[in-house]
C-alpha cells in the first residue's frame, strides 16, 4: 500500500470511531429517557384513580370559567403583590452593594477572603429557590408580606450582584487613570471612573429583576408570604375552580403590565 492509501484508511477509521461514539451516546440518552419515563409515568402515576380520558378532560374543563364575583376582592392582593415585588427588588438592590464590593475582583478589599466570600453569597442567593427563602422568612418574621419582601430581596441579590460585579471587572481603565491623575480619591475614582460606565447595565439588570420578581411575588402566598398566592391557595382549597382561573388571569395581567413597563423603562435607561 502506498502512503495515500494509508492516509485514507486512517481517516476512514477515525470517522468510523467517531460515528460509533455518537451512536453510543445517543443510545445512552435514549436508555436514560426510557428508564425515567418508566419510573415516573408507569410506576409512580396512579392510573386507576385518573380514570378515563373523558374524566381527565372533565377535570380540566372545570377551570374553563371565570368567577367575576371574586374581582372586587382581588384589588388588594394584586396591589400587595406588585408592591412586594417593588420593595423586594429595591431592598435586594441595596443589599447588593456590599456583596458587589466584596465580589468584584478589581475593587474587592481582599482577594483571598473577601472575593470568594462575595462570590459565595451570590451563588447562595441564586441557588436557594424563592419558595425556600419564603419558608425561611415566614418562620423568621411570621406570615405576611414582610416575609415575601425579604425572600424576594434575598433571591434578587445573586443576579444583580453577579452582573454588576462582572460589569465592574470589565470597565475601561482609561477614565480611572485620568481621575487618579487629577488627584481623585478612591471614592471619586468609583464615582467618576467606574459608576458612569456600569450604571446603564446595573439599572437594566435591576429592572429585569423587578420584572421577574412580579412573577415570584405572585406565588409567595402559597407558603403564607403575602400577595395573590394566598388568594390562589384559598380558591384551590375551596374547590372554587373558576376562582382559581380568575386569580391566574389576574396574575397574568399583572405580569404583562410589568413586562411592558420594564421594556420601556429599560429602553429609557440604556
Amino acid at each position: 500500500m502506498n502512503a495515500l492509501a494509508l492516509r485514507i484508511e486512517a481517516v476512514a477509521a477515525g470517522r468510523a470511531r467517531r460515528r460509533r461514539r455518537g451512536l453510543a451516546l445517543a443510545g445512552l440518552v435514549a436508555l436514560l429517557a426510557i428508564v425515567s419515563a418508566h419510573t415516573v409515568l408507569v410506576v409512580d402515576t396512579d392510573w386507576e384513580r385518573m380514570g378515563s380520558l373523558g374524566a381527565v378532560m372533565k377535570s380540566v374543563a372545570r377551570f374553563l370559567a371565570v368567577d367575576f364575583s371574586l374581582i372586587p376582592q382581588l384589588w388588594e392582593p394584586v396591589l400587595e403583590t406588585f408592591m412586594m415585588a417593588c420593595i423586594g427588588t429595591l431592598v435586594g438592590a441595596i443589599l447588593c452593594i456590599p456583596v458587589i464590593w466584596l465580589g468584584a475582583l478589581n475593587v474587592t478589599p481582599s482577594r483571598w477572603i473577601g472575593y470568594p466570600f462575595g462570590r459565595f453569597l451570590m451563588t447562595m442567593s441564586r441557588s436557594i429557590h424563592e419558595i425556600v427563602w419564603a419558608l425561611i422568612f415566614v418562620s423568621a418574621v411570621g406570615l405576611g408580606s414582610l416575609a415575601g419582601i425579604l425572600a424576594l430581596a434575598m433571591r434578587s441579590i445573586g443576579f444583580i450582584a453577579k452582573i454588576t460585579a462582572e460589569a465592574i471587572e470589565n470597565v475601561d481603565p482609561k477614565p480611572i487613570e485620568a481621575i487618579k491623575a487629577v488627584g481623585g480619591s478612591k471614592l471619586q475614582v468609583l464615582r467618576y471612573g467606574i459608576m458612569p460606565q456600569v450604571l446603564p447595565v446595573v439599572l437594566g439588570t435591576i429592572i429585569f429583576e423587578w420584572d421577574i420578581n412580579i412573577r415570584r411575588s405572585a406565588i409567595m402566598g402559597l407558603v403564607g408570604a403575602g400577595g395573590l398566592g394566598l388568594t390562589f391557595h384559598r380558591q384551590m382549597v375551596m374547590f372554587n375552580w373558576p376562582g382559581v382561573t380568575t386569580v391566574i388571569l389576574a396574575i397574568l395581567v399583572l405580569i404583562v403590565i410589568g413586562e411592558i413597563a420594564s421594556h420601556y423603562v429599560r429602553k429609557a435607561v440604556t
Partner: peptide, 9 residues
C-alpha cells in the same frame, strides 16, 4: 492622554 481618557457617558 493619547486616547483622551474622558468619562464617555
Amino acid at each position: 492622554f493619547q486616547e483622551f481618557n474622558l468619562v464617555n457617558r
